[in-house]
Amino acid sequence: MVENRRWIDILTHVVLIVGIAIVALPIWITFVAASHDAVRMTQAPLPLLPGGHFWENFTATLFGSGLSGTEIAPVWRMLLNSLAMALMIAVGKIAISIISAFAIVYFRFPFRMGFFWLIFITLMLPVEVRILPTFEVVADLGMLNSYVGLSLPLIASATATFMFRQVFLTIPDELLESARVDGAGPLRFFWDILVPLSRTNIAALFVILFIYGWNQYLWPLLITTDTSMTTIVISIKQMLEAAEQTPQWNIIMMTALLAMLPPIVVVITMQKLFVKGLTETEK
């Protein structure tokens, strides 16, 4: 907008501030709840200003048993589980899809397009649809309650394959030819040219896939029966239903805060590359 009128500036700011307030309010309440003791959280009205028990709750949640009187794993253990699962899913998805995209774009083999469409069709089969057979397979392979079982079934990704294919298609053919004249074989071309050129796209995908992995709910719920393998996202729900007692809101909210942290860290540290990866066109 080229308009330069004061009241428009004010109006836009008001709209933005109201928007931010709406988005931020639940997070604020989470933070406030995490800083009071258990007793205060059972009294009405709900506090709107932070209390003085933040660090107390923090250490109790992270290193103590968390919720008193239940048998769930310590929160640090669940964070670790979530982190392992999210990383394995993100890295695995990127590795597999970049390799399949490489094969589909740069090699001529029979039924090449057939394979591409086959991969593409799996978009129509998300985890929820194929959950019973997948569970059967994972159970038969003895991967219940393991990191591999948590991540492997979620690793195949048509979306990422498709995205890498589009990235590779924008790389001019002359680069491949020039690499061939320089004497680079397929693998060298992949490592020396394609991977560095897709760096920003890999970063963008990593952010998206990490959050996707971190937020997984249904699959981990199904295949982890051992409490030491539960992920943080599941545990929050479990805490709410903890046997026959009033929810300990201060601990639960602290857990929620902790669960929010890793995705935030990933987004903030990779923000620049993320934006570049989605917008950069120059190859």
Partner: peptide, 11 residues
């Protein structure tokens, strides 16, 4: 070979 669009490795 020298290509029309130079084909230099951008990175």
């Amino acid at each position: 070979m020298v290509f029309q669009n130079y084909a230099l490795y951008p990175h």
